[in-house]
């Protein structure tokens, strides 16, 4: 499953309500079915830590390492890569 984020959040991914909606409606059902997920960040210029946390932290808690095995992050610029890495490291350190 590919989720094109630009269509949903625009060039700056900061709206946590939309992140939660994507998580509930798309990511959790896909994880429950053990599907592979591609989060496509094409055209996304930036993202907040809060947005990425709202998008994936719950999945990391619920599904453990499987979440990182199943989810791939596509077309991320350096800033977005850094933010995703921070959230992923942070959640792994926290558990």
């Amino acid at each position: 499953m590919i989720i094109k984020l630009f269509k949903l959040v625009g060039p700056f991914a900061e709206n946590k309500d939309i992140a939660a909606e994507i998580r509930f409606k798309k990511l959790i059902p896909a994880m429950d079915k053990h599907k592979n997920i591609i989060l496509d960040f094409e055209k996304i210029e930036g993202a907040t830590q809060s947005f990425i946390h709202a998008l994936i932290s719950d999945l990391m808690r619920k599904y453990g390492n499987e979440a990182l095995d199943k989810i791939q992050f596509k077309s991320c610029n350096n800033t977005v890569k850094s933010i995703i890495s921070i959230v992923v490291d942070y959640m792994q350190e926290s558990d």
């Binding site: 830590q49 809060s50 709202a54 959230v87 959640m91």
Partner: peptide, 23 residues
């Protein structure tokens, strides 16, 4: 970092990491 009013749990809740102001 890691401290939020919404929980005492390390890593926060699914909506709050407790890292915003630290950033």
């Amino acid at each position: 970092p890691g401290i939020t009013g919404t929980t005492r749990r390390e890593g926060g809740t699914e909506q709050n990491a407790g890292a915003g102001l630290f950033f």
